[in-house]
Design a protein around this nucleic acid. Structure first.
Lengths: 341, 341
DNA sequence: TATATTAGCGCAATCGATTGCATTTGCTGG
DNA sequence: CCAGCAAATGCAATCGATTGCGCTAATATA
């Protein structure tokens, strides 16, 4: 079976005795082409196994049908699930997705934006890196009128669309849950206060305390990198400071596992003596002993929403449209680490 | 600040009074262009903020600088780590990566291959879906001479390059480890025997038994979907059959967690009464109680190797080259679930 | 000094699809 | 029977970068 070299619309044209223009229009279902001709073209295309060259089309009309995604790391269930959501939606509409990782590195994030722009993506969806506190690199995107959607790790400092969960409310609910379970000295693990999600979760935590007549003690709020080791350190710090906490609401699942490990090491009973609630519903939270309560962020939904938002924007001129912020509700999952009644 | 519309090499040409040909050659560091001219071009390019249009270039010389990746799901640490490895290597060489998921669905895998071909990727890297047992969809790729690399879930039925870990050896070592710890009735959790990795792991398991003078009992080999529930069912099955097993070597971490949960439910002591070893070093294996021994597949390395292999191929005509199979060594990680001495 | 090289650059076609404008054909109405 | 219009298709430029071939001028060789 010989390999047929590059089959183009010209081959189809030749085949049925019309020009490439007609073939192109027929393939794109142009109204000015007769049904008869369309059918001939379609048949011939199939017959000689024609595959449109999207690169040529992209060059011509400036649409690559590519979407760029930037996440801190794909190697986390939350992000990979979002990507999954985006991809599902995008593929259905004949768009392909290009994924890049910033590794929470500001410079890498800047480079990646440039790379995506170079690749002429039709839009960009981003979850900001932890160390991103300035946003000029996105100005170029906005200025070119390229659809830009932020999800989860977003910022209000840019006029861009966002998809987030209700971090405030989720934190409020998680904290309230701990209070309902009888915990009174609830610590909070958080991270950089420059990041919106951590601000919001802290705010929710604080408000829940206040609304339940519990004193907010800033010494119970511990900042770390939100990784496993960060959670361990934060826990040790709490213990060292001897503040007599009886629960932890962590803005990250990784950190709460660190806490769990440290507490078990010194034989603290979970949830009897200390209650724990994390955030993100990473798969491992269901496998720990005891299983960890956490907040499910419905990552796939978030990805789909972000994609939906993107496609709402794709055909409009972005430069003067009001920006939308889509807020999804998250879901508190109560497991053994915080259930003591 | 007015937005300058599309800046092309023609603008540079105009700027310094040469033609686009010269600019193009200068930018590509062509030897026949004088150093002086090159410098002028580079300077002018920077001055007017020129960005090459890779789509136009792609159209011209048929290279998109895109690599397509297909994994069953990105939403698994093992795969997302591989992708990370690939991306690191590819980005360094100015390639972008397009990720698609097959969801272990054969039809989706076929469609995805077509989509990547349509997108004119320069190469494809694949980890096969669980339900893929025929491979015609890859013939088209091979025939076009597009570099194709399989990783982890591979097949020998195609003349294509592969990157795998030494599944046989890893399984052998894992089983040997259990034997050294004094376990004698070791069960094995596996999956579809059509899949190479499971064949190999079973083979390693069996050989380790034989080499240690232990009888191989086929009733101790249980097949499942390798998910959490599969592991639970397999465990119950073993218990029901009353075979008196004292250890399980599972070809999947998810399944071994299932086993762990079932065994704990009936108060079996791990590792005193039953030893457990999984496969993949998913993050949660470090968080269970007890922590789970497992085999680390060095996913990032695998991704980098796959990318390296890809770039070795990229410039050569693929059709008549011998295919290589790169075998990486994995790493048995011994944790509490199998350490009883 | 005349011819052969070579460096340096321009011309124009090309990649494949798209599209504004022009042209052809067929039909309608007066 | 003919102007007039619409339907269907063709022509040719275009998107931006690349590249084979050719041209010019400068340098080398005889």
């Amino acid at each position: 079976m010989r390999k047929k070299e590059k089959i183009t619309i010209h081959d189809i044209a030749l085949e049925i005795g019309v020009t490439a223009s007609t073939v192109s229009r027929a393939l794109n279902n142009h109204p000015r082409i007769s049904e008869t001709t369309k059918k001939m073209v379609l048949d011939a295309a199939k017959a000689i196994n024609y595959k449109p060259n999207r690169i040529a089309a992209a060059l011509r009309h400036g649409k690559s049908k590519l979407i760029g995604i930037i996440v801190p790391t794909i190697n986390r269930n939350f992000f990979s699930s979002i990507v999954r959501g985006i991809e599902e939606h995008a593929n259905a509409l004949d768009y392909k997705v290009m994924i890049s990782q910033s590794y929470d590195d500001y410079n890498k994030e800047v480079e990646t934006i440039e790379a995506l722009l170079d690749a002429r993506v039709d839009g960009i969806m981003v979850s900001l890196g932890k160390n991103t506190h300035t946003f000029e690199h996105f100005e170029a995107v906005l200025q070119k009128g390229i659809p830009l959607v932020f999800f989860d790790r977003t910022t209000d400092e840019l006029k861009a669309n966002q998809v987030i969960i209700n971090d405030y409310l989720s934190a409020y609910q998680a904290t309230t849950h701990l209070i309902e379970q009888g915990y009174r000295h609830i610590a909070h693990f958080t991270s950089h206060m420059k990041i919106r999600i951590y601000q919001e979760r802290l705010r929710g935590y604080e408000q829940a305390l206040i609304d339940n007549g519990i004193n907010f003690d800033p010494r119970l709020v511990v900042e770390s990198n939100m990784q496993l080791d960060g959670g361990q350190k934060s826990t040790l710090q709490l213990l060292d400071n001897n503040l007599g906490f009886d629960a932890i609401f962590s803005a990250s699942d990784y950190a709460i596992v660190g806490a769990l490990q440290e507490l078990k090491r010194i034989n603290v009973k979970i949830p009897q003596e200390v209650g724990l609630v994390g955030f993100s519903n990473e798969p491992f939270t269901a496998f720990t002993e005891p299983t960890l309560s956490t907040v499910d962020q419905k990552a796939i939904d978030m990805g789909q929403s972000a994609a939906a938002l993107f496609f709402e924007m794709i055909n409009a001129d972005q430069r003067n449209k009001p920006k939308v912020k889509k807020v999804l509700d998250a879901n508190l999952i109560i497991r053994d680490s915080s259930r003591r009644l």
